[in-house]
Amino acid sequence: MVRSRRAAWVPYLLVLPTFVFLGVFVAYPMVQAFLLGVTDPTTGRVTLDHVAQMTSDLHFAPSVRDTLVITAIAIPLQIALGLAMALLVQSRFAGHSIFLYLCAVPIGISDLAAGLIWLSIFTERGFLNALLFDLGRITQPGPFLTYDRPGWLLAAVVLTEVWRATAIVMLILLSGLQLIPKDYQESAQVFGAGPWQTLRWVTLPLLRGSLQTALIIRTILAFEVFAPVMMLTGRLLPVLAGESYLWYSLYRNPGVASAYGVLILLLSGAFTWTYLRLLRPHPGEVRA
């Protein structure tokens, strides 16, 4: 009797520290940010002024659009590339461990530094100009990232994001791949499935859980990104997190900054929910 009562409590006791940690450092700041976003700082009353100020700002609509566009282009690229790299490493070709380490290098680089690296490639006195000049393809260096070439700006940001974040997708998918028992693939081969068929009908379905994790993590982080974007494009390609930062640090308005924060939270939540629904296990499905 005593034993079973203790056993019933043990799981709750074990999750308690995590629960407290998340409560103090995640849930509480989240509630506070939400309150900041809807409270008038002088009267303390509930107000939608900050939201109105946010939506009427000149940079609001472009920042929503650009954040979604960058996410919509960069994430599929990251997932596809990350999957290809993970499969390549999993095939254990000669030198695969060096390849793995090289691919993982960007994980250790801060996003601001990543922005700086790519800016130093694309500026007028940058590496790309030097290379093209040395190859004799251009007669004099010129700037690539200019305000009248929004396509170039977007491409540079997507490239930086893909370079910076594909490695983390690869690591998540690689660990997922390693969880899949070899038996499944061997059985598929016994039944005459080619490599493509094995990938499509055996590996990918079993990888669904890892894909879901990678998608959720990458999408949430994509909504938060702003340092490399600001580095490369200034404010010509405004993004939500960048606007939040500028409203806080430049305009000294925590209310509107929080309104942006809440918007990012809602968007991240909506996307996470969608991923969880779309990639949920079918009844009776086996997951690696």
Binding site: E124, P143, L145, T146, Y147, M231, T233, L236
Partner: peptide, 19 residues
Amino acid sequence: THPSSFTYEFMYEPLLSGE
């Protein structure tokens, strides 16, 4: 005006690079 001006924050950098 130089078309990269929208990224400039400290002008000594493009001055020194000759941009």
